[in-house]
């Protein structure tokens, strides 16, 4: 299963909003070269391996357009 998913059609653009790129500490996202149906420029995932699954992008996204898979927890930890 993937670590990250972006709902392109829900996104309102990295030029107008851009919160996901700002809150990501690992430079996982980059602005896309194409526009979505509404004419906004969504982010694209470039470095999925760097993702630490901190869920910042998912929690801050105002349009519920980013999903991060749940962190695989070590045995015994909560």
């Amino acid at each position: 299963m993937d670590t990250l998913r972006i709902y392109d059609e829900l996104c309102k653009g990295v030029e107008e909003c851009g919160i996901c790129i700002y809150v990501c500490k690992e430079e996982v996202f980059r602005p896309s070269e194409t526009l979505n149906q509404k004419g906004y420029r969504p982010p694209v995932i470039v470095n999925e391996d760097l993702c630490t699954q901190c869920e910042n992008c998912m929690i801050f996204c105002p349009d519920l357009a980013v999903v991060v898979s749940e962190k695989k927890r070590k045995k015994g930890s909560k």
Partner: peptide
């Protein structure tokens, strides 16, 4: 199909916090 807020509006973050 989508939120009614302007791009970058904080209301969406609050909405998600309530749902969470």
């Amino acid at each position: 199909t989508h939120t009614t807020f302007c791009p970058g509006c904080g209301d969406g973050t609050v909405a998600q916090s309530i749902l969470r």
